[in-house]
Amino acid sequence: MELLVIFFGAAVVNNFVLSYFLGICPFIGVSNKISSAFSMGLAATFVMVLTAIVSWLIYNLILVPYDLDFLQYVAFILVIASLVQFVEMFIKKMSRPLYRALGIFLPLITTNCAILGLALFIVLRDYSFVESVVFGVGAGAGFTLAITIMAGIREELDLADVPKAFQGAPITLIVAGILALAFMGFAGMIS
């Protein structure tokens, strides 16, 4: 039960993108097609789950016993950067078109605050190992959900008659704002 609460808390109620406003860069950048948006979500989820596992291990088995928790930021960034490199190689090998569709936003997961935020939340909330993993999966699912919904809306939006001044980034930001408002409906259900 406790784990379910953590999962849905991270995925829906306190959605990383739409209520913490973390990871906006790929959320805006790769959300013009559902297929590439979904893949971006999966890549981010993969990095999030691995980050949750590795950063929990490093923090609790190395940093805390040696009194080095002031190094947490550096250590987490190191973990994230390495994992993103790995995911990048993996995607380049498995699917060249996907690699090209994700473009610059794939290496940019490295500096994505959603991933670092995840690692820091785990420390802040003192999660156990299993809780951290579930939190990572939930956060990734939430990110995938948000970016896929956004891509769906933007695919429809391509057919709409948007005033010239609002075309491109402005209307995207407005849509993102309205989407975040919609997710406010879940606020407070799980603290």
Binding site: I58, I62, L63, L68, V74, A75, L78, Q85, K93
Partner: peptide, 23 residues
Amino acid sequence: TTMGGLGLIFAGGLALADRKLRV
């Protein structure tokens, strides 16, 4: 030493991955 060691471990892992996944 801790950070250096971690860096080395990750670098080693990436080097291995690069061998396997080189395009």
